[in-house]
Amino acid sequence: MRSSWIMPIAVALLAALGVAFIGGSITDLGPWYENLAKPDWTPPRPVFPIAWTLIFALAAMAGVTAWRKAPNVQVSDTVIGLFAANGFLNILWSLLFFRMQRPDWAFYELIVLWLSIAVLIVYCWRLSRLSGLLLVPYLAWVTVAGALNWQVVQLNPPFG
C-alpha cells in the first residue's frame, strides 16, 4: 500500500466510526421503542449493527476511492463535503427518531438522507464506478429503513 493512501483511509475510518458512534449513542432501544407497533417484516435486532457496520465500511472505501480519483482539489473537497453532509443527515435521523421520538419527522428527514445517498452514488460513480457501486447497499438499506419508518408512523398513534 502506498503511503499516500494512509491519510485518506485514516480520515475515512475516523469519520465512519464517528458517525457510527454518535448515531449509536443517540439510538435508544428502550421501552418507548420496544412498545412501538412494528411491521411483521421488521429485521431482527442483531441485523441492524451488522448491516450498519458493513455499510459504513463500504462507504468509507467508496469515499477514499472517489477522493483518490478526484482530478483536482475542488472535486476532492466536494466528495468530502457530500460525505460530511450525508453523515450529518444519518445522525439527524437517529436524533429525530429515537431521542425526539418523532418517527414522523424522521421519515421526512429520511427522504433527504436517501437523496443525499443517491447524489453520492451519482457523483462518486463519475469518478470511480467502484466507488458508486460500494454505496448501493447503503441506498438499499436506507430504502428498507424508510419503508420500516413509514410503517411505524402508520401503525402508531400520532406523535408529538
Rank of each mutant, 00 (worst) to 15 (best):
M1C: 11
R2D: 14
S3L: 15
W5D: 11
I6T: 13
M7R: 14
M7W: 11
A10G: 00
A10N: 03
A12V: 02
L14E: 00
L14N: 12
A16T: 12
L17F: 00
L17C: 13
V19L: 12
V19W: 03
F21Q: 13
I22D: 04
I22G: 09
S25I: 13
T27C: 10
T27E: 10
P31L: 15
P31Q: 15
Y33E: 02
N35C: 09
A37F: 04
P39H: 05
D40W: 11
D40N: 08
P43E: 01
P43Y: 07
F48K: 10
P49T: 06
I50A: 02
I50G: 03
A51P: 05
A51G: 08
T53H: 05
L54D: 05
A57R: 06
A57V: 08
A60L: 11
M61L: 14
A62L: 13
T65H: 06
T65F: 12
A66F: 04
K69E: 04
P71C: 03
V73D: 14
Q74M: 05
T78C: 00
T78R: 07
V79M: 00
I80Y: 07
L82T: 03
A85K: 09
A85I: 15
G87A: 00
G87V: 02
W93Y: 09
L95M: 12
F97P: 12
F98L: 14
R99N: 13
M100W: 15
M100K: 15
M100P: 06
D104Q: 05
W105T: 13
A106Q: 00
I111C: 11
W114S: 01
S116I: 12
I117C: 07
V119H: 11
L120F: 05
V122D: 02
C124K: 04
C124N: 00
W125Q: 11
L127I: 12
R129N: 01
L133M: 05
L133Y: 00
L134M: 06
W141V: 03
A145S: 11
N149Y: 14
W150F: 14
Q151S: 10
V152T: 01
V153Y: 07
L155F: 03
N156F: 08
P158N: 06
F159Q: 15
G160I: 14
